[in-house]
Amino acid sequence: MMSSTPQTPADVLTGPVARPRRRVPFWDNARYACIVLVVLGHAIQRLTYDSDIAMALYLSFYAFHMPAFAIIAGYFSKSAPPNKKQMARVITDILVPYIIFELLWTLTKWAFEGEANPNLTQPSWTLWFLLALGIFRLVLPYLALLRWPLLWALLISVGAGYLPNVDSTFSLSRTLGFLPFFVLGWWVREHDLVNRLRLIDFRPWWLRALAVLVFAVNGFIAWNWIGVWKSVDLNTWFFYNDSYAALGAQAWWSGGIRLLLIVIGLLLSVAFFILIPRGTHWWTKFGQYTMYVYLLHSFVLYPFRESGILRNAEPTWIWLPTVILLSVVIALALATKPVRWVFRPLVEPRARWLFSDARLTEGPRRDDPTGSRRPRER
């Protein structure tokens, strides 16, 4: 099997590789499937207030879609100390787009709501993941120095929930919460488990059937005890954003709940990866541009969420499939070339003026911040 050639956004600046390698479509397929679930989750969120079916669906994939995304991002990250060009790419690929889109959200809220409180320390809506990617890369070289980095990441995630001052400021609570998944992705690549165990090629029918069964059980549990999950606000637990006390769990063993959710997220992520197509399809290439979809889809959904059109939307059997279909269409449209051409200065700014040495921004390729290496478009 050919290598999956993991790359970080900075790898394109470390010099040409000695031997080109075949691109593995599995990773692009997985990225795109994840981003479709992100759009779908944000789209049906307003339906969950009035529809138990929508809430069950929401819980079913919120249990794993961001953990899976974090695993992919970790797999395509390196733990070596960054050089100057790699550090510059963190600024241009993550920090500058974060500031740009925070300013856009401030203008959007002012235009539609009549007020706005610009605050770069409090990420707007989906922007928390950009900061998380930056922080992940900052801490990974230090975690990699330690013995048992996975265990330390797990202790940090579970322990952070006990600290009420670890909150949404700079998305720290979510970043620490999802840290084990990111470190797991890096650890899998670091030990070359994908190639050694043929994890992409090995997919017998019984393994796929088991993955389907896992999702069937997941859906059954989400639906059959929907009243319980609503009463404990399970959806907010999946955000990894609040302390245990804020979630109403003040017992000493509350961290065990997060540990259980991490195990569930890992199990469902594995089932998800098993079911991801291995071959190249017409939509595979869109997996290279997930950050466009991630950053832009919230502006598309914002009018629908705030207008109230999705509240009391009945009958559910019409509205829910319609929203699902529209979510897929939005995820496709925002990854197309015309959209990328228009929004590239915002999503992928070069920001040469920002650096004392403009050569730090030079490079033959552009990458998605989740690690997808791709040719630079003209």
Score class of each variant (00 low, 15 high):
residue 153 A to R: 01
residue 105 W to R: 04
residue 332 L to R: 14
residue 138 L to A: 14
residue 256 G to C: 09
residue 316 T to L: 02
residue 248 G to Y: 00
residue 185 G to H: 04
residue 240 Y to R: 12
residue 283 W to V: 14
residue 171 S to P: 08
residue 46 R to H: 12
residue 39 V to L: 06
residue 264 I to D: 09
residue 222 A to D: 02
residue 119 N to G: 07
residue 336 T to S: 15
residue 144 A to N: 07
residue 175 T to E: 05
residue 154 L to M: 14
residue 172 L to T: 14
residue 262 I to M: 15
residue 338 P to G: 05
residue 40 L to V: 05
residue 174 R to L: 12
residue 209 A to E: 03
residue 118 P to H: 03
residue 272 F to R: 07
residue 213 L to M: 15
residue 32 Y to A: 13
residue 211 A to P: 00
residue 1 M to A: 14
residue 71 I to S: 05
residue 113 E to G: 10
residue 72 I to M: 15
residue 334 L to H: 04
residue 298 S to M: 11
residue 204 P to C: 06
residue 90 V to P: 02
residue 191 H to E: 09
residue 3 S to Y: 04
residue 174 R to N: 08
residue 134 G to Y: 00
residue 289 Y to L: 07
residue 331 A to L: 09
residue 122 Q to L: 11
residue 327 S to T: 09
residue 324 I to M: 11
residue 45 Q to M: 09
residue 69 F to H: 14
residue 299 F to N: 11
residue 299 F to W: 03
residue 360 L to P: 04
residue 346 L to S: 04
residue 158 V to A: 10
residue 326 L to S: 07
residue 57 L to T: 05
residue 325 L to E: 05
residue 16 P to G: 13
residue 58 Y to E: 03
residue 356 S to E: 10
residue 286 F to D: 12
residue 339 V to C: 10
residue 323 V to M: 08
residue 144 A to F: 08
residue 293 V to F: 08
residue 144 A to V: 01
residue 68 A to V: 14
residue 234 L to M: 11
residue 192 D to L: 07
residue 52 D to E: 14
residue 329 V to M: 11
residue 221 I to Y: 13
residue 340 R to Y: 08
residue 314 E to L: 08
residue 295 L to F: 03
